[in-house]
């Protein structure tokens, strides 16, 4: 009897822990969004009433808006380029056997193995002291493409390994050209993988602060801008509004992936 009671407590405890975990990991984000509407110049408790002042400040601040635009430009370009590079490489790595294949696979995984700080710094000194290129949004893109390449390639390789090649062969047998087969058979089948890769690369770029911190010139992305403001602890309420804005973008991305997951599983 006692044993069953204990087991019941154990099961309930598990469930309790699970929901507590979810609540705790979302707590800071919820607080941040709520307190971006707090009518107080100081960040934090207590609640002093509702205001849209900080959001207005953010939406009327050309620097802050420019930073948001920069972030989206960098993330979009980085996502598209790294997915394109990863797709080409993944095709070859999954479908062909050749000398040096392992070496190439490992070297594409390399950016994942180094701490971001080392990757950022080495690109920085290379661009600045050897190529003498000025830091700009373009240099951030270079870093982000490199950094998301292993993730994108791994996702696409996994998708291609599970690919049923007899479908392509059937198309060839029925007289389809290589290009038609690719367009009508291969592409539609790996499209979900491409979307996942784009999504991951976009998110990596949008949320990265480590690499962008070293490679950003006068034009910053959102995380770099927020980091700079926080280090000086200046303009805090507006920074809270920007952060809340970022959290809302995350929520939208999350809902999109939840809906697409519902459809598939």
């Amino acid at each position: 009897m006692l044993r069953y009671i204990f087991r019941d407590i154990g099961e309930k405890g598990f469930k309790f822990y699970f929901f507590l975990f979810i609540a705790v990991i979302y707590l800071p984000l919820v607080l941040l969004v709520v307190f971006s509407f707090n009518d107080s110049i100081l960040m934090g408790f207590p609640w002093r009433g509702f205001t849209l002042r900080w959001w207005e400040q953010f939406l009327h601040n050309p620097t802050a808006l420019g930073v948001v635009k920069n972030s989206f430009i960098v993330a979009s370009v980085a996502a598209v380029v790294s997915t394109a590079l990863g797709l080409l490489a993944a095709f070859v790595l999954v479908r062909h056997i050749f000398r040096g294949k392992n070496l190439i696979t490992y070297s594409i995984m390399l950016p994942m193995l180094f701490p971001g700080i080392v990757v950022g710094i080495s690109i920085l000194i290379f661009l600045r002291s050897v190529l003498n290129i000025k830091l700009s949004l373009f240099t951030i893109m270079i870093g982000h493409i490199l950094f998301s390449l292993p993730y994108v390639t791994l996702i696409l390789m996994a998708r291609l390994i599970g690919f049923d090649r007899s479908l392509e062969e059937a198309a060839y047998d029925l007289g389809a050209s290589e290009f038609t087969t690719f367009r009508r058979i291969t592409l539609p089948l790996i499209m979900p993988g491409i979307f996942v890769a784009l999504f991951i690369a976009f998110t990596i770029s949008l949320e990265d602060v480590v690499i962008a911190h070293f490679l950003a010139g006068a034009q910053a992305t959102i995380p770099v801008f927020v980091y700079g403001q926080l280090r000086r602890w200046s303009g805090l309420p507006m920074v809270m509004a920007i952060s809340a804005f970022m959290i809302m973008i995350m929520a939208v991305l999350l809902i999109i992936s939840l809906i697409s997951a519902r459809r598939r599983y």
């Binding site: 960040m43 995380p223 927020v226 809270m240």
Partner: peptide, 14 residues
């Protein structure tokens, strides 16, 4: 999915 900087700011609220 939220960047570290914002997460740190959020934990400061806690």
């Amino acid at each position: 999915l939220v960047c570290w900087v914002i997460l740190v700011l959020g934990w400061k609220m806690v």
